[in-house]
Computed example of a mutant assay.
Amino acid sequence: MTELELTDLDADRLLLDLPGTSLLIFTSIGCASCRWARRELGKLSLPVQRLAWIDAADNGGLVTRYEVFHLPALFVVHDGQFYGALQSPLHCAELTLALDTALSRPAEELP
């Protein structure tokens, strides 16, 4: 699984162009759950091609557009289509189920 660091400057273009499924994760260094997610999510066997990390403190434009109110915040993009937020514990089985559920919904416009 690939891991990317996205910013206000490149996130839109990359998310529209990248094939497969991206798990978009907003984090911040001051958030204990975010630090845990950063350390552990890459070790899980998730059905995604990449984890796309966004530092919420440095990318206020994306935080505003995605309406991020809590951290970590997770979203799904598949083949350039936005499938919304994931509300799930950060464990493999629960995340896999949440991903499957999100991808079964109609796609939306990227925020």
Rank of each mutant, 00 (worst) to 15 (best):
M1Q: 10
T2S: 15
E3F: 06
L6S: 01
L6N: 03
T7M: 01
L9Y: 08
A11G: 01
D12V: 07
D12F: 02
D12I: 03
D12N: 05
R13M: 05
L15C: 04
L15E: 09
L15P: 02
D17F: 00
L18R: 03
L18I: 08
P19V: 08
G20S: 10
L23G: 06
L23N: 04
L24A: 04
L24R: 00
L24C: 04
F26I: 03
F26A: 03
T27R: 00
T27Q: 03
G30D: 11
G30V: 10
G30R: 11
C31W: 06
C31N: 10
S33K: 13
S33C: 10
S33R: 10
C34S: 14
R35G: 02
R35H: 03
R35I: 04
W36S: 14
A37S: 09
R39N: 13
E40A: 13
E40L: 05
L41P: 15
G42F: 08
K43P: 07
L44Y: 01
S45W: 06
S45L: 11
S45E: 15
L46H: 03
L46Q: 13
P47G: 08
P47M: 10
V48A: 12
R50Q: 13
L51C: 06
L51Q: 07
L51F: 03
D55M: 00
D55I: 00
D55L: 00
A56G: 07
A56L: 06
D58M: 11
G60V: 08
G60L: 14
L62R: 08
L62D: 06
V63I: 09
V63S: 02
T64R: 11
R65L: 13
Y66G: 05
E67A: 12
F69P: 00
H70W: 07
H70C: 06
H70S: 13
A73H: 14
L74S: 10
L74R: 07
L74N: 09
L74E: 15
L74A: 08
F75S: 08
V76I: 14
V76L: 09
V76G: 02
V77T: 13
V77N: 07
Q81H: 09
Q81P: 00
F82V: 05
F82H: 15
F82K: 02
F82Q: 05
F82M: 04
Y83D: 07
G84P: 02
G84I: 06
L86E: 14
Q87M: 11
L90H: 09
L90F: 02
H91Q: 15
H91D: 15
H91A: 15
C92I: 11
C92R: 11
C92P: 02
C92Q: 15
A93I: 12
L95A: 13
T96Y: 00
T96M: 01
T96R: 01
L97G: 08
L97M: 14
A98T: 09
A98N: 06
T101A: 08
A102P: 00
A102G: 02
L103G: 00
S104N: 13
R105Y: 00
P106C: 02
P106W: 04
E108L: 11
E109P: 00
E109F: 05
P111V: 04
P111Q: 07
